[in-house]
C-alpha cells in the first residue's frame, strides 16, 4: 500500500540546505527566510545533520509536499533531483551548475560571476593593469577563456593565457607566463589548482616576481591575493527568492539560470602598497572588506 501523501500546500516551500555548518550556506538560508517567511509556508531540512538520511528526507518531502524546493548547494540539489525531480526547484550556491542534471522544473542562480563582470571590476580598480595572465587547462576552460578574451577587449585588457596540460607542467607554465603579464588571474581550474601545494606555489612564485594575483574566493586573500571578487550571497538569494515567488505565481521566468548580479570584493591594501600599484581611489567605495 502506498504511503499517504499530503495535499500540496499552495505557496509552501521546503528549504534543503547541503550543510548549515558551512557559513555561506547558513547565510543563504537566513537571507532566503528573511525575504520569504512572511509570504510563504517554509520548512527546512539540513542535510549536514547526522541523524538525517535519504529515507528521512524522502519522508519529509512526502509529508510536507511543498510546492517548491529551494536547494542551497550541490548536495541539496542532487538530493532534490533524485527524490522530487518533478517539483519546482530553485537552487543557489551550487558550484559549476552546468555539471548538474537539469529537470523540466529546475531553475537557479549560477554561483559564478560572468568573466566580463569580473574583468570590468578589475579595470575599475586597477586601470593600469592591462595584461592579465591566466593559467588554464584546455579540457576544462577552453570555452570559458574564449569568451573571457572577447570580454577583455571591451574593457581594454589583454588576456595572455598559458595552457597547463597536467599539474606537473605547472611550474614551467608559470615561469613562461609571469614575465609577460602585469597580474595573474587565478580561475577555478582543477588541473591548475590541483591542491593546496600547487595553489601556494603559484602565489609564492607570483609574489617573488612582484606580480599581483587576482582571485575568486576569500581563502586566497589570506595568502596574499591583491583582489578577490566573488558572487555576493545576499544578491544571489535575492535573485533566487524572486525566482521562487515568480514560479509560485506561475509567471514566466526569463532565464533559467542567470548569473549573480552582485559582487563581494576583498582588497588587500598591504599588497597595493607593497607593489606600488595605481589604485582608482573611487573604487574603494565598492570594497566589502579591506585587508591591512
Amino acid at each position: 500500500m502506498a504511503a499517504a501523501v499530503s495535499a500540496e500546500e499552495a505557496g509552501s516551500i521546503l528549504i534543503l540546505n547541503s550543510n548549515m555548518s558551512t557559513e555561506k550556506y547558513a547565510l543563504a538560508q537566513t537571507e532566503f527566510k528573511s525575504r520569504l517567511e512572511k509570504r510563504s509556508n517554509l520548512a527546512e531540512v539540513n542535510l549536514g545533520e547526522k541523524e538525517i538520511d535519504e529515507a528521512g528526507i524522502e519522508k519529509i518531502i512526502r509529508e510536507k509536499n511543498p510546492e517548491l524546493i529551494y536547494c542551497i548547494g550541490s548536495k541539496a540539489y542532487m538530493m532534490s533531483n533524485k527524490l522530487a525531480k518533478e517539483k519546482k526547484t530553485v537552487f543557489s550556491s551550487a558550484i559549476n551548475w552546468r555539471r548538474l542534471p537539469m529537470g523540466r522544473n529546475t531553475y537557479g542562480v549560477s554561483n559564478e560571476l560572468p568573466a566580463g563582470m569580473v574583468l570590468m571590476t578589475y579595470r575599475y580598480f586597477f586601470p593600469g593593469l592591462k595584461k592579465i595572465g591566466v593559467l588554464y587547462n584546455q579540457n576544462y576552460n577552453a570555452e570559458w577563456l574564449k569568451n573571457a578574451e572577447k570580454d577583455a577587449k571591451d574593457v581594454g585588457i589583454e588576456i595572455i593565457a598559458e595552457s597547463v596540460k597536467n599539474s606537473n607542467r605547472l611550474d614551467s607554465a608559470l615561469e613562461e607566463l609571469l614575465p609577460k603579464v602585469d597580474v595573474l588571474w587565478l580561475i577555478s581550474d582543477p588541473v591548475v589548482l590541483s591542491g593546496p601545494e600547487s595553489t601556494l606555489n603559484i602565489l609564492q612564485k607570483s609574489d617573488s616576481m612582484k606580480k599581483p594575483v587576482f582571485a575568486y574566493n576569500e581563502i586566497f586573500s589570506s595568502y596574499g591575493a591583491l583582489l578577490v571578487i566573488d558572487a555576493d550571497i545576499p544578491t544571489m538569494v535575492e535573485q533566487a527568492s524572486m525566482m521562487a515567488l515568480d514560479l509560485l505565481s506561475n509567471k514566466k521566468i526569463a532565464e533559467r539560470v542567470p548569473s549573480p548580479a552582485g559582487s563581494h570584493i576583498i582588497l588587500n591594501m598591504k599588497k597595493v602598497e607593497e607593489y606600488g600599484i595605481e589604485l582608482n581611489k573611487e573604487a574603494i567605495g565598492s570594497v566589502n572588506k579591506i585587508i591591512k
Binding site: T235, A261, N288
Partner: peptide, 9 residues
C-alpha cells in the same frame, strides 16, 4: 532587485 553597489546594477 537589490544589488550591493551602483556598478553592479
Amino acid at each position: 532587485m537589490s544589488v550591493p553597489k551602483d556598478i553592479d546594477a
